[in-house]
Computed example of a mutant assay.
Amino acid sequence: MSALLGLVLLTAPFVTLPSPAFPADPTLAALGSDPAQLRLFCYSTRCGDEEWRRMRSPTESPIVPDSGARRGPALPRSTPWIGLHVSARSRESTASYSNDWRIGTRYRVEAVRNGPTRVGVQLGAGYRLAPLSDDGIHMPGPVMRGVVEIGHRITPRAEWNQRIQFETGQGTTFVKQSVGLDVSLWPAWTLESDFTIRHDEYGRSGSESAESSLQLRRRF
């Protein structure tokens, strides 16, 4: 009898008993086949079991977490409602200004600013206090001013630009047109060329002047 009992005790760990039958529900069957799914998720900053991550000694190679490791559900508010992004700069702007020779306000819009070509338009109204202090008409009084700026990048190192500025008031009109080509020679050195024409109109008569410049500029 004792020999038979000893044989039973020795063979018991190697005997596989049939598993109980599960209902036809696939959810219950999945839970029964993988009891680990019944474990509650850990919401602390450091889980107590850490099944797939363990402390290692300095002599061990780094442990790469298993890509198939289960992750708990996302915490409330862990997913942002709106992704962070850099706000786009507005194409339109308005400003008021005052100096020793003119006060006024201006409105600017960047009609084209994407790609190699850019076009900007600026319009404004003001009052000229002192003549011959900057580009404009030669007498004080209410004035209308405007600027059209056009630029085009020909190559990564060369850019062509044109600027047309006008001011009118008191029966007088002033127009200034500048055309230039900027070439980048080194990261901080630029060769700038400029050709300017000024036109002053007094009623049916007027005068014109022109000047040009070529300069090498270093930016600090």
Rank of each mutant, 00 (worst) to 15 (best):
G32T: 01
G32S: 03
G32H: 02
S33M: 00
S33P: 02
D34A: 11
D34P: 06
D34G: 04
D34H: 14
P35R: 15
P35G: 14
P35F: 13
P35T: 15
P35K: 15
P35M: 14
A36I: 02
A36F: 09
Q37I: 00
Q37R: 11
Q37A: 05
Q37K: 06
Q37F: 05
L38H: 06
L38G: 10
L38T: 14
R39T: 08
R39A: 15
R39H: 10
R39Q: 06
L40G: 08
L40E: 02
L40K: 08
L40M: 13
L40Y: 12
F41K: 09
F41L: 06
C42H: 12
C42V: 04
C42Q: 11
C42P: 03
C42A: 11
Y43H: 10
Y43Q: 13
Y43C: 03
S44T: 07
S44C: 15
S44Q: 04
T45I: 13
T45K: 11
T45N: 13
T45D: 15
R46H: 10
R46A: 07
R46S: 08
C47I: 05
C47Q: 13
C47P: 01
C47V: 09
C47E: 14
C47Y: 14
G48I: 13
G48W: 04
G48H: 10
G48F: 04
D49W: 12
D49I: 11
D49E: 12
D49M: 09
E50P: 14
E50G: 09
E51N: 07
E51M: 06
E51V: 08
E51D: 08
E51S: 14
W52I: 03
W52G: 08
W52F: 13
W52R: 07
W52E: 14
W52K: 03
W52L: 04
W52M: 07
W52C: 10
R53W: 10
R53C: 12
R54D: 02
R54L: 03
R54C: 05
R54I: 00
M55T: 15
M55S: 09
M55W: 05
R56G: 03
R56I: 01
R56E: 04
R56M: 06
R56A: 02
S57V: 01
S57C: 08
S57Q: 09
P58Q: 08
P58G: 04
P58A: 10
P58F: 05
P58W: 04
P58S: 11
T59E: 00
T59I: 02
T59R: 03
T59N: 07
E60D: 12
E60A: 13
E60S: 15
E60I: 01
E60F: 05
S61F: 01
S61I: 00
S61R: 09
P62Q: 09
P62H: 09
I63S: 07
I63V: 08
I63A: 06
V64N: 04
V64D: 02
V64L: 03
V64H: 03
P65R: 14
P65N: 07
P65A: 12
D66T: 05
D66N: 07
D66M: 02
D66I: 01
D66K: 12
D66E: 05
D66C: 04
D66Y: 00
D66F: 01
D66A: 08
S67D: 11
S67W: 01
S67E: 11
S67K: 07
